[in-house]
């Protein structure tokens, strides 16, 4: 009797040991996985800072690149301005459109709203290069030339689903009691949205917008088909416009030339700083808006 009890306890101890061994193995694997993911992050940061800082100077922001990629000197003024112009215009288009679509999906409801959500989901899942091709067919083929305007439209299409999804989710989360309160007060619906629902969701919507902008600023593929790029400084959105990602791409393809290589890395550093600024700002606002216990 006591011997069989001993056998049982032995077996229990053995399985317990096995389970704890597996537990430890999992720890090791999980930490190893984190290292695998974080090494590239650190490596990229190190690469950009170490190699990119050399190129940065006042001239880098105040002059345009030389016509010949292999020539040294010059800056990236046209690309910085082009990126800001196109992303700015894209955001001006996408923000009202995105919020309107989200309000529409919530207020009108039914099958039409379902199909709007479906179109938005499809857009969100599209590879950005396909968005570029779409806008090429719609704008570039129609107008007959590449332009900053086409680039802005492509970036707007990329921003749109991000903004709709963020706003939609937030409007859906609006407290039901608040909704009922506005109805009990006899508020008109447009008033409820303008004065109550959207302000309630505002910090979340701003987060969505900032994340959308941080995505759009770094996009290269759609601009190949729309903005095309340009070696000169221009404010005319009806002409081809340069952008930082395009400049990095074209110079990287010629990275056999030290000048092109340095220019690509300097621009990449500037681009990453801008993108991360928008991204972190968005996260910060989202975090601040959440109640303290959920942070």
């Amino acid at each position: 009797m006591s011997s069989s009890a001993l056998a049982v306890s032995d077996r229990l101890r053995a399985t317990s040991r096995a389970r704890h061994a597996k537990d430890r193995a999992l720890m090791v694997l999980a930490w190893a996985a984190l290292v695998v993911a974080v090494v590239p992050l650190v490596a990229i940061a190190w690469f950009l800072v170490e190699q990119g800082v050399r190129s940065i100077s006042l001239e880098f922001f105040t002059s345009d690149p030389p016509g010949d990629l292999s020539a040294s000197g010059g800056g990236i003024r046209n690309a910085v301005v082009g990126t800001l112009l196109m992303t700015g215009l894209a955001t001006l288009i996408a923000v009202p459109a995105g919020i309107a679509l989200a309000v529409f999906a919530r207020e009108i409801g039914g099958r039409v709203a379902g199909s709007v959500r479906f179109v938005v989901d499809v857009l969100a899942g599209l590879p950005s290069i396909v968005v570029g091709i779409f806008v090429y067919s719609l704008v570039v083929v129609t107008t007959g030339h590449f332009s900053g305007l086409a680039g802005a439209v492509a970036l707007a299409v990329i921003e749109l689903p991000v903004i709709v999804v963020a706003s939609d989710e937030l409007l859906r989360l609006t407290d039901r009691r608040i909704d009922e309160g506005t109805r009990a007060l006899g508020m008109l619906r447009w008033r409820s949205f303008l004065s109550v629902f959207i302000p309630t969701a505002l910090s979340g919507i701003i987060t969505g917008v900032l994340l959308a902008v941080s995505r759009a600023i770094g996009e290269t593929a759609p601009l190949i088909f729309t903005a095309l790029g340009n070696n000169f400084f221009t404010l005319d959105m009806n002409e081809p416009v340069q952008a930082m990602p395009l400049l990095i791409y074209r110079n990287a393809l010629n990275s056999a030339f030290p000048a092109a290589r340095d220019r690509a890395m300097g621009t990449a550093l500037v681009l990453v700083v801008i993108v991360l600024a928008f991204n972190l700002m968005g996260r910060w606002i989202a975090r601040r808006a959440r109640p303290a216990d959920q942070r």
């Binding site: 950009l48 600023i217 593929a221 791409y249 990449a268 681009l271």
Partner: peptide, 11 residues
């Protein structure tokens, strides 16, 4: 996830 594709390409 925030780092642009073109920077990954360059690196």
């Amino acid at each position: 996830a925030a780092i642009p594709s073109v920077v990954y390409g360059l690196w």
